[in-house]
Design a protein around this nucleic acid. Structure first.
Lengths: 223, 223
DNA sequence: TCGTGTTCGTTATAAGTTCTAACGCGACGG
DNA sequence: CCGTCGCGTTAGAACTTATAACGAACACGA
């Protein structure tokens, strides 16, 4: 029985093949999209024929799930690394955008059109919580004079997704808003919906980010 | 030669079949997603076998393009109808959300993960402009005391996508922000990313909408 | 009323896909 | 050194999109 650290030659080989399969899969996704991912084509590319890959992945779904997991992991690590090296909320936003622009398909694998039957395993939702936790950490360091909101009071009763993070519910609201707004600007940019409109998507992103990090007061005159 | 109004029996029949095919396609998309759309299955469902559908659609791509066009048309009409019946910006937002919730797959067909090779025909981008024009109309009726933004001045030089709409560039910015923020909240909700978090997505949407319609002043203390 | 020609639906076929099953070779490990 | 486990193969089933060729039904003009 091998210790957890060392692996048997077979395990090493298996790991290498799995890694190469995933690498080819990413290339294929980058050029043809996730829906056109073909196990057959990957096998041929690697010099082996068809069903050999089923020794390494139970099927197309498992491969894609693995890719999604890797994508989440990569995003969580990127965000965390930015935070650990001293980045503030804005720094996190720029890290997110850079990560997304580096490989749009990887972003859409996480935040794109959901597959009807598919349900993410628990460990993937756990990674998602990691990202949220980092965001809450960053927002905790950012002082705010924003007034509390009805939604924030609603979150008071529904904050279990934040784990045991001590951030006040207004911070929860801000983090959630960070997520939805930047995803909105980013996903439309990556999907090409701004193509032909002429303006610079980076400036739109920057404008949204500015709203997210600038302290504002609600106009008392408004209802 | 038939006048433009009346159609030959063959054209009527052709139109009926095309319509039924699209109807079945929508059902199939609603249950299995757009990627699982099968011409063969639709044909069988309609009592005819396989390649018969190629008399009506050049292929899978043309059918999907047609569905995308219909989806855009439906959204543009919905938004326009809301505006014409006196809805303000908030009314438009609620119409948008209701439309999206009524058939999430239809929403994702427009705003979901882009197909790598696919480029939308010009008439589809024209419908997109229609939606934007309606939004600009609604925002024009909404008075604003918001300060101008760097992005708004940038839009000053890139406003050709607004056609000849007389709205000031700050309004262009507000309309664009309406789009990206509501899309952000809506798409994450529809994709199920809020599942298990417990809070009510409608309240998050309402909070974003409130920010989009409430007059605010930037805190002078911020850089 | 009777051709004529367009259009439609069929079957057959090609080239793909995922995935299972059965078989043999080779290497790893006791 | 030898058994067993793992890997890769080919064969095949059940799908898919899409094209080709054939026959029948229908609309339309003479």
């Amino acid at each position: 029985m091998a210790e957890p650290g060392t692996k048997t030659p077979r395990e090493r080989y298996r790991g290498q093949v799995r890694a190469e399969v995933k690498e080819r899969a990413w290339e294929q996704i980058a050029t043809a999209g996730a829906s056109a991912l073909s196990l057959n084509a990957i096998a041929k590319q690697m010099g082996m024929s068809g069903p050999a890959l089923y020794r390494y992945f139970a099927g197309r779904d498992e491969l894609i799930t693995e890719l999604i997991r890797d994508a989440y992991r990569s995003l969580a690590d990127t965000v965390r690394a930015a935070y650990d090296s001293g980045a503030d909320v804005a720094g996190l936003a720029h890290a997110l955008r850079a990560w997304a622009l580096a490989d749009p398909h990887r972003y859409f694998l996480i935040y794109g059109t959901p597959v009807p039957g598919y349900h993410a395993p628990d460990d993937i939702t756990a990674i998602s919580s990691e990202i949220m936790a980092t965001l809450l950490d960053a927002y905790t360091a950012l002082p705010s004079d924003r007034p509390t909101t009805p939604f924030a009071t609603h979150l008071e009763d529904h904050r279990h997704w934040a784990g045991d993070h001590p951030a006040p519910s207004t911070t929860l609201h801000r983090a959630l808003t960070f997520w939805t707004r930047l995803h909105g600007a980013l996903s439309l940019e990556l999907a090409g919906h701004f193509k032909g409109m002429g303006f610079d998507p980076a400036l739109l992103f920057a404008a949204e980010l500015n709203d997210l990090t600038t302290n504002m007061k609600a106009d008392p005159g408004a209802a």
